[in-house]
């Protein structure tokens, strides 16, 4: 059976509950077990840390999809002093799956673009589960050009299952809207910093990842297609998703090894969703460091390097 939920935390909770009971019992019986209990608590803590350092890729997929995880909206609220959300593609409609606007990060105005997933069913319906239609990509395109006009650096947050596979999306040119953003991002004349905060799914997620620096949270994943899609297409067997998640090399650590990711941002033990404060603090430090670095760089050099980095991705025999 394929694991559909990462339930390790529940086990820890149960164990801690048992320890609590033991504690009460020892008090009532006036039999001091506090030493033993402390040792056990420490042991649980150690076990938990080791567990989280050795997560299977599929477990990371499940963690990265946890709806409780902080998303673009949370990071923007915590990191920006000022924030104005902007809407619409000026062609067809607004796409709520993309959050976009101008914010101020430590006094530096930024154009911020991100995917927006819901934390509950109502929000998910509103934000289309974080899956943009072409309007979303055209809104991105519009605001990238605006950032360029005002010489404003761009910061992006990535967390999406991918572009929406719908009739309307195809009618209005999903492929065309995505390729346009890819091309624009590759040559945008302002610094671009991208952070993968959760799930990076396929070409629909890649649009906001074309950047000068690509950062990734330690339990985030990025893949060419979902492990489910790959297992069903390549192996015709949905039961083998765990194996597929392993084979596809989708974790932050794998992608750092493949020179696609520039830095891994450590999440607190248990995952980003259990400690917003600590996660946001880590993300803030990383953004600050890389942003000041790329803003300080000579612009032509930065653009040349962005192109070179993209141009060099790929390995083959010759």
């Amino acid at each position: 059976m394929v694991k559909r939920q990462f339930d390790y935390e529940q086990k820890i909770k149960d164990l801690k509950g048992k320890l609590e009971e033991l504690n009460d019992l020892s008090k009532n019986m006036q039999f001091d077990l506090s030493n033993e209990i402390e040792i056990l608590e420490q042991k649980i803590q150690e076990d938990r840390e080791t567990r989280y350092q050795n997560l299977e890729p599929w477990e990371k997929v499940l963690l990265s999809r946890n709806p409780e995880r902080p998303g673009a909206v949370d990071y923007i609220a915590a990191l920006c002093d000022d924030w104005v959300e902007l809407h619409g593609d000026r062609c067809f409609s607004e796409d709520a799956a993309i959050i976009a606007g101008i914010g101020s990060f430590e006094g530096q105005p930024l154009t911020i673009l991100g995917y927006r997933k819901g934390k509950n069913t109502k929000e998910n319906l509103l934000f289309n589960f974080g899956m943009p239609n072409p309007e979303g990509y055209r809104k991105i395109e519009r605001l990238l050009r605006q950032a360029e006009k005002f010489n404003r650096p761009v910061l992006t947050f990535i967390d999406t299952p991918g572009a929406y596979p719908g009739i309307g999306a195809e009618e209005r040119g999903q492929a065309w809207s995505i390729s346009k953003v890819l091309m624009t991002m590759a040559s945008l004349k302002v610094p671009v910093l991208a952070v993968v905060t959760g799930e990076g799914g396929s070409g629909g997620a890649l649009t906001l990842a074309v950047s000068d620096r690509l950062l990734m949270l330690s339990n985030a994943v990025f893949s060419v297609a979902t492990p489910e899609a790959c297992a069903s297409i390549l192996w015709k067997d949905l039961e083998r998703v765990e194996e597929m998640a392993m084979a596809m090399k989708i974790t932050a650590q794998d992608l750092f090894g493949l020179d696609i990711v520039d830095e891994i941002i450590a999440e607190p033990v248990g995952g980003a969703h259990l400690n917003y404060e600590a996660t946001i603090a880590e993300v803030k430090t990383a953004i600050k460091k890389h942003l000041s670095d790329i803003i300080a760089r000579d612009r032509d050099e930065l653009l040349a390097e962005r192109y070179r980095k993209l141009r060099n991705i790929g390995r083959f025999n010759e």
Binding site: L182, M183, G203, L206, A209, V224, K249, G314
Partner: peptide
């Protein structure tokens, strides 16, 4: 994209799009 090359194949989308931009320039 060729699934057997994972993210490397996905990145070819960005790489080729960037090259087309050079052609436009």
């Amino acid at each position: 994209a060729r699934m057997q090359e994972g993210m490397i194949s996905l990145m070819q989308m960005a790489k080729t799009s960037a090259a087309i931009n050079k052609l436009n320039e």
